[in-house]
């Protein structure tokens, strides 16, 4: 019966004390949220911590939940805030030199690269490397789009920026990936 309910209905049911509604909601959102967090912070331990903290805040805020947007947007917004806080707290922004090193490696002649014979596995691996080298805002916008399936407005709502800013971030992210990876 819970399978027929939307995420928002399940969250409202949990807010009224229905624990089974939370179980159903958690099963739906756990993978998407975890991957978003893990690929944002790139460290499993940190991702686990932020994942649990995201749900902790969701549970604590259940009484204040209102159906003004998709539940996933609300959930990712919480996770986003935690990720940003973790970036500011633990990890300095990747410097231009580090980024240049990665791209230089990607831009190396095929003869100099051991991954000339890239297969699909290698392509996925390279994509992961490129994602890691992206600036946080661009990577987050990319992940919210491709992992969570959010639109521009929803990404804007989660990240707290404007629609055009999100679009610009995505444009830059794709350009870097294409330039350094796709071709």
């Amino acid at each position: 019966m819970d399978a027929e309910k939307t995420d928002e209905e399940l969250m409202l049911a949990y807010a009224r004390g229905d624990g089974r509604a939370f179980d159903a909601l958690y099963r739906r959102q756990r993978g998407m949220l975890y991957r978003y967090i893990l690929r944002s912070v790139r460290h499993r331990d940190q991702a686990d911590e932020l994942f649990q903290e995201t749900w902790s805040r969701t549970i604590a805020s259940r009484g204040r939940y209102r159906v003004e947007a998709k539940f996933s947007t609300w959930l990712l917004q919480i996770a986003h805030n935690l990720i940003v806080d973790s970036f500011r707290r633990a990890r300095p922004q990747a410097g231009a030199e580090e980024t240049e090193t990665v791209f230089r490696e990607l831009d190396a002649p095929e003869s100099e690269r051991p991954e000339q014979m890239l297969n699909e596995f290698e392509q996925r691996r390279r994509l992961q490397i490129v994602l890691d080298t992206l600036p946080d805002e661009q990577r987050e916008a990319f992940l919210l789009r491709v992992e969570s399936g959010l639109g521009l407005d929803e990404i804007a709502a989660v990240t707290g920026v404007g629609h055009e800013t999100v679009k610009s971030r995505l444009r830059y992210a794709l350009a870097k990936i294409r330039e350094k990876f796709a071709e």
Partner: peptide, 16 residues
């Protein structure tokens, strides 16, 4: 991690 989150959620609403 799943068990920890679910237990936390059910503790918040013990009778559920």
């Amino acid at each position: 991690l799943d068990a920890a989150v679910v237990a936390m959620a059910h503790r918040a609403v013990p009778t559920s």
